[in-house]
Amino acid sequence: GPLESWCYPPPPLATPELTRALRRTARGKRGRRARADRPRSTAPCSRRDEQRRHHLLEITLPMNYPACPPSIAADVPYLPKLQWSESSRLKDVLCQFQEHLKVLQDYWSTMDGIDKALWVVDPTKPTYAMSHHRIALGDDCYILLHVDTHKPNSLPECRFLGTDGKLERLIKNWRKNRKRWSADRKFHENLATVLDFALPQPPSVSIKDDQQADCGICYATHLPVDDELGTQSGCAADYKCENPSCSRAFHSVCLRDWLRTITTTRQSFDVLFGNCPYCSEPVAVKSTDS
């Protein structure tokens, strides 16, 4: 039943390993022939949904494209099943992905409401692919929620954590009141109704200027310790989008690798000029670490 079951979220779009793979792909384009069993190329891009959320999409073309469909990776809870024929092209993939974003609007609106109204302790920095949340209920008690991506305002799967004595009342109320859950109410209102008590609001947290942020491309705070990265090995995000409404942080090396895969990127001397993968505002980064 919903009380005992639990599902874990899919992995994020990008990892340090993927970043290094993109770097190797970029080097291969500059002179090294690709093996026949490797993908022909990878095309990253950013798409905006109806609520102006930015979503990273990565399209990988097989060697026998367009006879075989491309594969995609994106920061969504689940990927669409691509409809493909030999006459299909990349624009068809983009259109299908855009339609997929429309399907997920209610889900993301529900998750946004949870983040604003409830005390979410995990994840501290949720991505659009995550469907789980750990909510603080007070008195060292928590509820782990897994929101249905297809019916986001339905009764969620959950698990309670905390001291046994304090959890008994919560579990009892959940079992007794679960039928009172209504799709016409907001998610946090339903949760308060079923648990039969006022849920604690999220604490107001001021982010310090020196607080380290995750990179918007590899989703890691620090780059891996790797000799291949040279002086950037183990470094934190060191570049920030200058658009005040975005302010997304990046590792310079990740942003540089990203820009090198974009055909509209231009280079002047040792500087690469392109667009932020989230807000499309201009960005510039040195083409080398030196």
Score class of each variant (00 low, 15 high):
206 S>A: 11
224 P>M: 11
205 V>F: 03
191 L>T: 00
211 Q>W: 02
233 S>W: 15
241 C>L: 07
188 H>V: 05
231 T>L: 13
187 F>K: 08
188 H>K: 08
227 D>H: 12
229 L>Q: 14
240 K>V: 09
193 T>R: 10
247 S>G: 00
239 Y>A: 09
185 R>T: 03
235 C>T: 13
203 P>M: 08
232 Q>Y: 13
190 N>A: 04
195 L>F: 01
237 A>S: 15
220 A>F: 04
203 P>L: 07
227 D>T: 15
196 D>M: 00
205 V>Q: 10
214 D>R: 13
200 P>L: 02
199 L>Q: 03
215 C>K: 03
198 A>S: 08
230 G>E: 09
198 A>R: 10
233 S>T: 13
200 P>E: 06
206 S>P: 00
214 D>K: 08
198 A>H: 06
192 A>N: 02
245 S>E: 12
246 C>Q: 01
192 A>Y: 02
237 A>W: 07
228 E>D: 13
221 T>Q: 12
243 N>R: 09
208 K>G: 15
187 F>Q: 06
218 C>H: 05
194 V>W: 05
243 N>Y: 01
217 I>C: 07
243 N>G: 06
209 D>W: 06
218 C>N: 07
229 L>M: 12
211 Q>Y: 03
214 D>N: 10
229 L>S: 14
214 D>M: 10
218 C>L: 03
237 A>Q: 05
229 L>W: 11
233 S>M: 10
213 A>N: 03
191 L>G: 01
186 K>E: 06
196 D>T: 00
192 A>M: 04
201 Q>K: 15
214 D>V: 08
232 Q>F: 13
231 T>G: 09
234 G>E: 12
204 S>Y: 01
220 A>T: 13
197 F>L: 05
209 D>E: 11
232 Q>D: 15
237 A>V: 13
190 N>D: 06
223 L>F: 05
218 C>F: 03
221 T>V: 14
216 G>A: 08
243 N>F: 05
237 A>R: 09
241 C>P: 02
222 H>V: 06
194 V>A: 07
212 Q>D: 09
222 H>P: 00
200 P>Q: 05
198 A>F: 04
244 P>L: 05
204 S>C: 04
201 Q>R: 15
210 D>T: 04
197 F>H: 09
209 D>M: 08
208 K>R: 09
242 E>L: 15
213 A>M: 03
236 A>W: 02
195 L>Y: 00
191 L>R: 01
197 F>G: 07
211 Q>L: 04
200 P>V: 03
226 D>G: 11
235 C>M: 11
234 G>T: 14
190 N>L: 07
204 S>R: 11
225 V>C: 08
247 S>C: 02
227 D>I: 14
207 I>A: 09
231 T>N: 13
235 C>G: 11
193 T>G: 01
224 P>G: 12
207 I>C: 11
246 C>Y: 03
234 G>P: 06
198 A>C: 02
218 C>V: 06
224 P>R: 11
